[in-house]
């Protein structure tokens, strides 16, 4: 009940402060724009959208997702509203979930509004729509992971800019440690164990499986585990700040 109340308040706030519109428009333009330019959509005739469209998503999300959530807790600390929330008959866990679900919902809308590219591939050819759906699922879960990370970071500080910079840095590391050029470079000089470790820790190997239509259990455990750790961590940080 209280999670729903907080979810509604946060979601309304994203739209009254125009954050949601900015994210939806910028993500839509960049993701579709990149697919038709650097993604070489026409050259590869990539009906599954794996490389031309979805491949760019973690790169965009590592910056845009923290931009949405940087204020999640830092703003509550800065304005003192954390004291209101902390003295209402609600658990901090339900507040954390309400805020997290609201930011995830904004991203669900942003991802859904890229539908013209799906309509286009269906009009141009005969794509495997399950693979496309799985790609979207992969993008959404990567997005949720980055949102949970920046929720945790924003619990540490009342400064939104610090929250943004630190969150982007963490998401950048998670994105780039599993990306092909980095993995190839490490493969040349490092051991096989290091290569395995990097691709397991990075989001790309898990994400790319999803864009190919493979939702693997280890990948689900990886993402859901990271999200859970970050949300539980947010709760612990908020509690420890009051101790």
């Amino acid at each position: 009940m209280n999670t729903w109340t907080i979810f509604k308040r946060e979601l309304t706030s994203y739209f009254t402060q125009l954050t949601a519109y900015a994210v939806i428009v910028i993500f839509g333009l960049l993701s579709v724009g990149l697919a038709f330019t650097f993604g070489s959509f026409w050259r590869y005739e990539d009906a599954s959208l794996s490389y031309s469209f979805f491949w760019w998503h973690p790169l965009l999300l590592m910056i845009l997702a923290p931009a949405v959530t940087m204020r999640l807790w830092s703003d509550e600390h800065r304005t003192g509203t954390i004291e209101l929330l902390g003295t209402m008959p609600v658990s901090m866990g339900s507040a954390i979930l309400g805020k997290f679900f609201a930011s995830a919902f904004v991203w669900l809308i942003a991802l859904a509004l890229t539908f013209p590219i799906v309509v286009s591939v269906n009009w141009l050819g005969d794509p495997d729509n399950w693979t496309i759906f799985s790609g979207y699922l992969g993008s959404f879960i990567v997005c949720c992971t980055f949102l949970a990370i920046s929720s945790l970071v924003s619990a540490f500080t009342r400064d939104q800019v610090v929250a943004l910079i630190v969150s982007v840095a963490i998401c950048f590391i998670l994105t780039f440690c599993g990306i092909d050029p980095v993995i190839n470079e490490v493969r040349r000089s490092g051991s096989a164990e290091t290569v395995n470790l990097l691709s397991t820790l990075g989001v790309y190997s898990h994400f790319l499986d999803a864009t190919r239509g493979l939702i693997r259990l280890p990948s689900l455990i990886y993402f859901i585990g990271l999200i859970s750790v970050c949300l539980v961590g947010t709760n612990l940080v908020l509690k420890s700040q009051r101790a």
Partner: peptide, 21 residues
């Protein structure tokens, strides 16, 4: 006296009332 600045007075009070059940 902390408040959510992006809300209206009535909206804020409605939110707080919902939080109080």
């Amino acid at each position: 006296a902390p408040l959510y600045n992006d809300m209206t007075v009535r909206g804020f009070l409605r939110f707080c009332a919902s939080m109080q059940g």
